[in-house]
Amino acid sequence: MPELERIPKVKREGSERFHSSGKDIGFDLLGFWRWSASDVVSNATRGRLAEYIIAKAIGAANDVRDEWAAYDLLDPRGISIEVKSAAYIQSWHQNRFSTISFNYPKTHAWDSGTNRQSGVKCRQAEVYVFSLLAHQVQATLDPLDVNQWEFYVVPTAVLDARTRSQHSITLKSLRALHGPPITYDGLRDAVATAAELHRAALSA
């Protein structure tokens, strides 16, 4: 069997039709998107939504999301970003709000172009954006409202230097480390500042 090269990503429109060997069978790609991703409160979809919101804020949403990239986003300025999300309110029945914490473990990077994994565990991105859907009223919860989110933008070097935990961080610890959250409008500048601090720490 010959080697199979990586399949290039194609940005689709949603109007593409499902078919049977070229014969239209009555539904389109947009219907699949609606079926599979309409529950934006669910954990899996909310994580991708957080990535998209941040990508729009920094101007990195023109391409197609890369499911297998070593990090979640690449800023047009060349800054690699990892996005983590959490929420108080989930899509399932709850007796209480979820306790907020974020995992940020070191990983082996995998290159989809070569199908090879790196030998060293590390944090792949220069900047982490911890994204909290902070709204606490279920009746008015709307993940599409960027004002219901809080963003904490942290240089990876700061996370690497933590002594309390190298795997996760509670919201209380994150706020102590970061200070007040960043709004959607402040994300672009905050990412640039965090990247500068990360690079300065590496060169010190």
Score class of each variant (00 low, 15 high):
Val127Pro: 03
Ala157Asp: 01
Thr183Glu: 13
Ser168Ile: 00
Asp189Val: 00
Thr170Leu: 12
Pro180His: 13
Asp160Met: 05
Pro143Ser: 08
Ala134Thr: 05
Val127Arg: 10
Thr183Ala: 13
Glu150Trp: 14
Pro143Arg: 13
Ser165Phe: 04
Gln117Val: 09
Pro180Gly: 13
Asp160Gln: 01
Gln124Gly: 05
His167Asn: 13
Gln166Ile: 11
Gln138Asn: 04
Thr170Tyr: 14
Ser118Phe: 08
Val146Trp: 08
Gln124Ile: 04
Ser168Lys: 11
Val154Leu: 03
Pro155Trp: 08
Arg175Gln: 12
Ala134Leu: 07
Thr114Ile: 03
Cys122Ser: 15
Ser165Lys: 09
Gln148Thr: 04
Gln148Glu: 15
Pro155Gly: 10
Ile182Leu: 01
Ser112Thr: 08
Pro143Gly: 02
Leu132Phe: 08
Ala161Trp: 04
Ala157Trp: 08
Val120Tyr: 08
Tyr152Arg: 02
Ile169Met: 12
Ala134Lys: 05
Pro155Cys: 05
Gln117Tyr: 03
Ile169Cys: 04
Ala139Asp: 15
Arg175Leu: 01
Val127Glu: 06
Gln117Ser: 09
Leu159Gly: 12
Thr183Asp: 14
Val154Asp: 00
Arg188Asp: 11
Val154Pro: 12
Val127Trp: 01
Val127Lys: 11
Asp160Asn: 15
Trp110Gln: 07
Gln148Ala: 09
Glu126Gly: 13
Asp142Gly: 01
Thr140Lys: 14
Ala157Gly: 03
Pro180Asp: 12
Arg188Ala: 06
Gln148Val: 02
Glu126Val: 09
Val158Ser: 14
Asp160Gly: 02
Pro181Ile: 07
Trp110Ile: 09
Thr114Ala: 13
Leu141Ser: 12
Arg175Thr: 13
Val153Phe: 05
Asn115Phe: 10
Gln138Trp: 07
Tyr184Asn: 10
Arg116Ser: 10
Arg162Asn: 06
Cys122Leu: 12
Val129Leu: 06
Thr114Leu: 06
Ala139Gln: 15
Thr163His: 13
Asp145Gly: 11
Val127Asn: 06
Thr114Trp: 07
Leu132Gln: 06
Arg164Pro: 07
Gln124Glu: 15
Asp111Thr: 00
His167Met: 15
Leu141Val: 12
Lys172Asn: 09
Asp111Asn: 14
Asn115Ile: 07
Leu133Tyr: 03
Gln138Ile: 10
Leu133Met: 11
Thr170His: 05
Trp110Glu: 02
Ile182Arg: 01
His167Trp: 13
Ser173Asp: 15
Gln136Ala: 06
Asp160Tyr: 00
Gln124His: 10
Asp189Ser: 04
Asp142Phe: 01
Asn147Trp: 07
Leu133His: 08
Asp142Tyr: 01
Ser118Pro: 04
Arg164Gly: 09
Ile182Lys: 00
Cys122Met: 07
Gln148Phe: 11
Ala157Glu: 10
His135Arg: 13
Thr163Ala: 09
Ala125Lys: 04
His135Gly: 03
Pro181Ser: 15
Val127Asp: 05
Ile182Val: 15
Ala139Ser: 15
Pro155Thr: 06
Leu133Arg: 01
